Simulated assay, not measured.
Amino acid sequence: MDTLILTLQLFTSLPIKKAVEVSDERLIRGVALWPAAGIVIGLFQALVFCLADGIFPLQIAAVLALMAELWMTRGFHLDGLCDTADAVFSSRSRERMLEIMKDSHIGTFGVVAAVMDLALKYLLVTASEVPVYMLLAAPVAGKMVQGICMYRVNYPREKGLGKSYIGRVPAGITVISVAFGALWAGGCLISADFTFPEAVVIPVLCGGLAWLFRKHMVKVIGGMTGDTLGAASEITEIFFMLLMVALEGVG
């Protein structure tokens, strides 16, 4: 229970005041529960969307749902995406890229990444025939792939919070995290009238994209950091949503 509480304290704005000891062991164990934070985020933004959709036009409901996600997550992963974009597109040395990620200021590429992220999510929510299920599933898909991104990978800095768990998560916890997230995401897809093969293929493709992103980050900066994990989460969320809309169109 303490591990779950720590996970929710790390990834959500839930007012959980209970003091929990933060240790490397607990952080590593907690990876198995990271999709649970995605479920909480998805439930919250889906609830906001449903309430708003009964009062306002679809477009406003979509904006309010995205605002709800930003409030619940404190923009945690979006910040990682911005920092990663600033670093990677700077075309600097590996060491300089890592310094850029640590900089609290946001650059041009980071701003563009944030705008594109939110714009794509808005367009996909408004384009979907089943926006509630999309909102329920996408944040979980983003958390599901993080185990893939950090399993047996190098942490390229000498110190940092990510050093406590990146590259140190055992196979069993990685499998639990991925399976947990895939089951929830797949269940949402089936509930939204996607076929069973589609409910399997979409999470698998998301995992494949995360693996390719991880390989690219290893090549560019020598491993994965907390910022690149956040970027992987945001990219996977959007990819998941894109696949949903694409398959709706095929159907």
Rank of each mutant, 00 (worst) to 15 (best):
L161T: 01
A87Y: 07
F56M: 14
G230A: 07
M217V: 03
S13T: 09
S164W: 05
Y165H: 10
K102M: 08
F11K: 02
E248S: 09
V200W: 01
A138P: 07
G80D: 07
G251Y: 13
C50F: 13
P35V: 12
G251R: 15
F194G: 11
A119N: 11
A32P: 02
F194Y: 15
S91E: 12
M244Y: 08
M97W: 07
G42W: 11
L209K: 04
T228S: 07
G187M: 02
A37G: 12
Y133G: 14
V200F: 08
G107R: 02
V145R: 06
I39F: 12
E129A: 08
V204L: 14
I176S: 03
A179G: 00
V40Q: 02
A68N: 13
V178T: 06
S23V: 01
C50Y: 13
L123E: 14
A232V: 03
V201K: 10
F194P: 10
A127K: 06
M97G: 06
L33V: 09
A32C: 03
E234I: 14
D86W: 03
G181C: 01
M144I: 08
I106A: 03
A199I: 13
V245E: 04
M244L: 12
V220L: 04
V140R: 03
G160L: 05
G142Q: 08
P139K: 01
L51E: 11
K159E: 15
A119D: 08
A185C: 11
R74I: 02
G181Q: 04
L14S: 11
A68V: 13
L205C: 14
G162M: 00
D86C: 01
L98K: 11
A32W: 01
L212P: 01
A171C: 04
V140I: 11
P197H: 05
T228K: 00
S13N: 13
A36Y: 05
L81A: 08
G249S: 15
R94A: 05
L78M: 12
G38E: 13
R152F: 00
T7N: 15
L120Y: 01
G38A: 13
C50M: 15
K121C: 13
K219T: 13
V63P: 10
T225W: 00
P197N: 09
C206N: 09
P170W: 00
S90W: 02
E198P: 06
R94T: 13
V153S: 09
E158R: 05
G107A: 01
D83W: 10
T174I: 03
G249L: 15
M1F: 14
L136T: 02
A37K: 09
E198W: 06
L27Y: 13
A37Q: 09
L70G: 15
I202H: 08
T12M: 05
I41V: 15
F213R: 04
V145F: 02
T3G: 07
V40F: 04
F11W: 11
L4H: 08
H77T: 04
V145D: 07
L118G: 10
K143V: 03
R168M: 02
A179L: 07
V88Q: 07
C50E: 14
C206S: 06
T225L: 00
R168Y: 00
L120H: 01
S233N: 15
V220C: 01
E69M: 15
G181M: 03
V140Q: 07
G186Y: 01
A61R: 06
G30R: 12
